[in-house]
Amino acid sequence: GSPGIQSFLPPGWEMRIAPNGRPFFIDHNTKTTTWEDPRLK
């Protein structure tokens, strides 16, 4: 199987799917959430 997208996120980050189907990202380091992919910064 191919590695999940989770493995490509920075340490402490998690990806979830919102009720509307959009992915969002949780930064457990700062306890914040964002719509922006942290890998694109």
Rank of each mutant, 00 (worst) to 15 (best):
G21F: 03
G4H: 13
G21D: 02
I26P: 00
P11A: 14
R39T: 15
Q6I: 12
G12L: 03
I17T: 09
T34R: 02
F24H: 05
F25H: 00
S2P: 13
A18M: 10
G12Q: 04
Q6W: 02
R16Q: 12
F25G: 00
P38Y: 00
T33G: 07
L40G: 15
I5V: 14
T30Q: 05
I26A: 01
F25R: 00
W13F: 04
G21V: 00
H28K: 06
T30K: 08
P38F: 00
S7P: 15
G1L: 13
G1V: 12
W35V: 04
P38A: 01
T34Q: 08
M15I: 11
L40M: 10
K41I: 15
E36L: 09
T33K: 11
I26E: 03
I17V: 10
P10H: 04
F24I: 11
I26G: 00
S7G: 15
G4C: 10
I5Y: 13
G21N: 05
G1R: 05
R22G: 02
G12N: 07
R22Y: 08
G1N: 13
L9N: 01
I17F: 13
R16F: 11
T34C: 14
F25T: 00
L40S: 12
P10K: 07
G1D: 12
F24S: 02
P11Y: 10
G1Q: 13
F25D: 00
H28N: 10
L9C: 03
P38V: 03
P23E: 07
P10Y: 06
M15P: 00
T30M: 07
S2F: 13
R39K: 04
F8M: 14
I17M: 11
G4S: 12
Q6E: 14
P10G: 04
T30L: 07
P11E: 10
P3R: 01
T30W: 03
S2A: 14
T32P: 00
G12A: 03
D37Y: 08
W13Y: 03
A18H: 11
W13H: 00
G12I: 01
T32I: 11
